[in-house]
Design a protein around this nucleic acid. Sequence first.
DNA 1: GCCTAGGTCCCGTGG
DNA 2: CCACGGGGCCTAGGC
Lengths: 294, 294
Amino acid sequence: MTATTVHQPTHREALWALEDAFERGDLITVFGRCTVEYDGRAASSLGVGRRLLVLKPDGTALVHTDENQKPVNWQPPGSEHHAAVRDGRLRVRSVHTSPDETLAVRFETVEQLSAMSVSGRRDLSVTGSEADLRNALLDRPALIESGFEPLATERPTDAGPIDLFGRDSDGRPVVVELKRRRVGPSAASQLQRYVAAIEREEGDNAAVRGILVAPSVTDRARRLLAEHELEFVAVEPPSSTGDAGENNTLDTEPAETNAFDLAVDDSAHDSAGDATGNDESEAAGTVPADEESN
Amino acid sequence: MTATTVHQPTHREALWALEDAFERGDLITVFGRCTVEYDGRAASSLGVGRRLLVLKPDGTALVHTDENQKPVNWQPPGSEHHAAVRDGRLRVRSVHTSPDETLAVRFETVEQLSAMSVSGRRDLSVTGSEADLRNALLDRPALIESGFEPLATERPTDAGPIDLFGRDSDGRPVVVELKRRRVGPSAASQLQRYVAAIEREEGDNAAVRGILVAPSVTDRARRLLAEHELEFVAVEPPSSTGDAGENNTLDTEPAETNAFDLAVDDSAHDSAGDATGNDESEAAGTVPADEESN
DNA sequence: GCCTAGGTCCCGTGG
DNA sequence: CCACGGGGCCTAGGC
């Protein structure tokens, strides 16, 4: 129920505590001086130092140092944790199969070991994802282009699924690729692959349009789009500070929960344009201070 | 020096311990029941549950549940941690600027709070990276193709840097893209971009070859390569179990530390081939059992 | 700061 | 199991 902790344990005491925690399915943290060896998809070796080891009941293992968000070493979920005392020292091994990988943490000293039962993330709700952008555009397809008619999302092709497929006011097929943030060359190539796939589907004479929809685009990506006669439409990035209810009611639509501020900022394939997205100034009342309740 | 821990603290005691740990630049772990709110590049809300909060002196914040390698919520390095007691409850806020992001963790109960000074990853050495593959191929360019002459790595082009650039025995320019693992469509597109850039550099009549070097390739990527008349050469993935000293000395070169077993497995652009990498059997004595020392 | 690409990417979804 | 693409990707290296 509550957290169990052993402070400055002997290595053998730490082993007992670990085995108990494994039994209970607790999440475990270990502070101590250790070395780390990893062998699997790659291989690595880490000299002695003071670190934090986290062991999860799902098999995940994390070795954290004083900096960076990513662990310096780790083991994926599905691994099996094993603990033992060798040469009087605690050793934790996490073993994964398929792919075969092993993480070994050898402790010189164990400062502290804690364990507590933790609960999963049942109810994490996120807004501002690409799916939110897609829904926003389905509500207001004219923001991609006046007269654009959405026909399908995740439409399958030989090259993979298209984010948003439809036709323009002239009846031409339109492939739309959505990105929630500034795009680089890979997104342009991705769009180009999908356009080529539709062109093969429709026949060689088909004039298939491709539109990349994102907050902004790098110079290189813009040139790539131009080379393939693809287009770019800018949308505002998700507006962050809780404006979920602040619908700019220009149209009749109620417009479902819309994390994206949508702005038409067409930049045709042959124009240089400067919609690099570094010039946003007035979106929705960006008052940096004054957050309610501290 | 050693770890400090408070068990079942009051919220105010937890606050004192946190402030002390901030002062010392410790790495901090907090077990407790909490809710988590995030707002920034996206936004999310997480209901009450028992979790582990990790705070690093570089500004990183991590919220971990009982499963998955990635934290359910987090804050990047460079954030500023702030702690306070509001309504009798501990609240930790980590604030980042540019991009503006805030993570707020509100504790219902604090089971335990620990802090310890930890040290960085000075001496992490990894093998099996793409750079290792590149070095291995520079030592033995014939494994890409007999007569291949490497001229440059990271060669800049209008489309970005080329992993490995050279010429074949006929003097034709060759663009080589390296991947440390099985490749999909994006790698094929990446190679195609580089080849197109070199073709523009060299002139329209130039016959520029492109070779994707990787352990294996998906069907879709193989088709993409064929469409653009690009080639694929298979190399064995990094062989994992410590064979760093096992140089197969066929040539005169001493062959530096070579984490990759290299195998020629050419599959031309117009052949279907089956070098999907699922059929490796005898590489280098793959004895699954018997790991030295435990 | 931006851009580009690698990563033991992780992760979910679909086949 | 593999394949594919998103991600608050993160991180390193250039510029």
